[in-house]
Amino acid sequence: TGSPVPVPTATVVRVVKNANTLGIAIEGGANTRQPLPRIVTIQKGGSAHNCGQLKVGQVILEVNGISLRGREHKDAAWIIAEAFKTKEKDHIDFLVVEPG
């Protein structure tokens, strides 16, 4: 009996670039209170919102296989921005975890 203990499981969420913007706001990065970037906003009409699987509160561990661990906020934001900009891929794979 009792409630199940939530185990944070990392999942890959694929966001297809089907809008002009990605449409997420992130906070955090190395040397801040939030050492890995956390999604704080998802804007309607952006690719992230259209994908339907990213949620506010999720922490981003990797972007297209690139680890965000140890990266400061600006670096992490730059990696995500570049992943959205590049025409080499029509999608971004986010490895995210919902903190327990």
Binding site: E27, R33, Q34
Partner: peptide, 15 residues
Amino acid sequence: REKRLTLPPSEITLL
């Protein structure tokens, strides 16, 4: 005196 590790809050970036 207890030493606390206080880290600054992060800025927020819209992507």
